[in-house]
Design a protein around this nucleic acid. Structure first.
Lengths: 98, 98
DNA sequence: GTCGCACATTGATAGTTGTCTATATAGATG
DNA sequence: CATCTATATAGACAACTATCAATGTGCGAC
């Protein structure tokens, strides 16, 4: 065991079929935010489970949330793309353009 | 889209501190291959544990192995960089160039 | 052959995690 | 206030996984 690695946490957050489906749905939606209620369709899991996965993605720095009335809108964290690309670069000299 | 399982497996393979350290050490070594015996230093885990992690990375398509006498050399799988970049692209429209 | 080295496999165990049901909170509305 | 809707949290449980000690396998040297 070593000190908490932020990159490991980011990769672990994405390394789940439900969470990857959530993030892909958000990516397909473009730059905008998506209501939490819209994530219940894509994956056949219960609402609390979706909420749990959204929390994991939030705490890993993948997503950010914003209340709007009774709904909660989710969008990519500002630093996410750069961080993911940075991991690729550190792994294999991958060069990336946002 | 249709087969998130392979991508999930790739991300899960990288989402471990020991395995990420292995892959980073390999990335730092440039294009060449690295002997399995050289991975025992970076992480304070036993030899069977390293062997287990190398197997996970191999089966996920991150690394390939090649025997050379009593040693086993590990290097990046040919498709790894492209696959990792493709995941980033599918997530957030990230464009990456190898 | 057999000895020693490098790596892989097995079996067991402790810790982590994804999932559920049940319940709680926050906000809008009448 | 009462109530409905949309998320979040709590607690429990099954499944998975990282790890180790012990053992097995493959290869070169003597």
């Amino acid at each position: 065991m070593q000190q908490p690695d932020r990159d490991v946490a980011l990769l672990a957050a994405l390394a789940d079929p439900t969470r990857l489906a959530i993030v892909r749905q958000l990516g397909a939606a473009g730059e905008g935010a998506v209501c939490a209620c819209d994530f219940t369709e894509c994956c056949s899991v219960s609402q609390p489970t979706i909420s749990h996965h959204l929390r994991v993605l939030r705490e890993a720095g993948v997503l950010v949330s914003e209340r709007q009335g009774t709904n909660v809108l989710y969008s990519f964290a500002p630093e996410f793309r750069e961080r993911f690309a940075g991991i690729g670069a550190s792994l294999s000299g991958l060069v990336q353009v946002a």
